[in-house]
Nucleic acid binder design. Structure first.
Length: 385
DNA sequence: GATCCACGGGAATACACGGATG
DNA sequence: CATCCGTGTATTCCCGTGGATC
């Protein structure tokens, strides 16, 4: 337990009966410094990085495993540490082509969910590597490429590219091609849900789903720093862990949702019903929150307003479009809203469920159901204002 | 040095056509 | 075949940048 948590506990005595002490502790997307139960994976990633400690670049690698298995958690924690002030390797890096010593490499972590195009990938990488801001407009991809090249010539980098091969992100193979121009200046670590195809990269690290006990630990740890004392029991953690079958994202999302419900009802601890409603708000399977929260602003707005619509307003895509177009917060043409809804359905963030009604003629309409953790999204969206 | 303007990329919008059904 | 739903794609809009021009 950290100091902040201890202090918040004491504060409660002063009549401040808050159930939720720290939303970020429950946030499935917010990663903590020491992800538990992933020691062996950490070791293997460090094995892959080992040449860095001898002043050489490692060959490219891939890390893969199912959703909610802590891939991002491990890499976030590790790369944050390695790019921090603590890490200072003894020797400089030798490039394979030149015997000249260059600086030690930077460690950067880029998310292809936020960087789905060539332009954006270069942009994200470059801004992660430099202090000064990189223009997002008015500059060509070519331009960014050459800026990146000269930056990397000064200092090489180990680049972890997260979430490759998802519905809207580029494949590991594409990422490799885009980094081809920086050969010998960059080592790639791609992170995705499926194993790489073919004989690239050299090193492949598999990360299995969490076991039951570890998942319970994770929930208890997060719960104890995020919630008031005794608000969340061990047996409740066991229930959630069993339900989530190894997916920490879903388990935490359900806990977060349960806490939001209990908090709205003014309870000081989670009830069985809160837990149920928390789980109900996380569809199985669920689109990951990290994805939903990196969608462009207006798409998130459409999703947020979608959650406010009545059953009747969601009976068909047309009805939903009209209802959303009427919302004062949404300043988009009906055609665009409709476009968004179909695209979100295509990506599996919402699901179209076809009605089998027969009252009107024409193709039967379909109603839209969210396929992402609704309560968590609502809360996080409203908090960021 | 202030102003103008073309450019590049992404987001929004429009539109056309294909599919399903009574 | 009339009518509504679904999707691919072309076009327009927007917004900074950075070079040209005054």
């Amino acid at each position: 337990m950290d100091i902040d948590t201890r202090i918040r506990r004491r504060e409660r005595r002063g009549g401040n009966h808050r159930l939720i002490l720290e939303y970020q502790a429950l946030n499935p997307v917010a990663h903590i410094e020491e992800p538990p139960g992933r020691g062996p994976v950490l070791e293997r990633v460090l094995d892959y990085l080992d040449p860095v400690f001898d002043g050489r670049f490692p060959a490219d690698a891939a890390l893969w495993g199912p959703p909610g298995s802590g891939k991002s958690a491990v890499i976030t924690a590790l790369f944050q540490r390695l790019s921090g002030p603590v890490f200072r390797p003894q020797a400089g890096i030798q490039t394979t082509t030149r015997a000249q010593t260059v600086e030690t490499p930077s460690f950067v972590h880029v998310d292809t969910r936020a960087a789905a195009s060539e332009f954006q990938l270069y942009h994200e990488t470059l801004s992660a590597l430099t202090d000064e801001s990189v223009p997002e407009h008015g500059v060509s991809t070519e331009d960014l490429l050459s800026r990146l090249r000269s930056q990397l010539a000064e200092q090489g980098a180990i680049v972890a590219v997260d979430h490759v091969g998802e519905p809207r992100t580029m494949t590991a193979e594409t990422v490799r091609e885009l980094f081809e121009p920086f050969d010998h200046l960059v080592s790639l670590l791609t992170i995705g849900r499926s194993p790489p195809e073919g004989d690239w990269p050299t090193t492949v690290i598999e990360i299995p789903a969490y076991g039951q006990q570890v998942l319970i630990d994770i929930l208890m740890t997060r719960g104890s720093s995020g919630l008031a004392a005794n608000a969340f029991s061990h047996s409740q953690a066991r229930t959630l862990a069993a339900w989530a079958s190894g997916n920490a994202h879903d388990a935490l999302a359900a806990l977060f949702g349960a806490a939001v419900v209990a908090n709205r009802e003014g309870r000081e601890r989670l009830s069985t019903q809160d837990l149920e409603r928390g789980m109900d708000a996380v569809p199985q399977p669920s689109a990951s929150l990290g994805w939903v929260l990196t969608l462009p602003e207006n798409r998130q707005l459409v999703l947020r307003e979608l959650l406010n619509l009545s059953e009747t307003d969601r009976q068909s895509v047309t009805a939903t479009t009209e209802a959303l177009a009427d919302r004062p917060t949404i300043d988009l043409s009906p055609g665009t809203i409709r476009r968004f809804l179909y695209e979100l359905a295509e990506d599996g963030i919402v699901e179209r469920i076809q009605a089998e009604r027969s009252d009107r003629q024409g193709r039967p309409p379909s109603r839209l159901e969210p396929r992402f953790p609704t309560l968590v999204f609502e809360q996080l969206y409203d908090m960021q204002g």
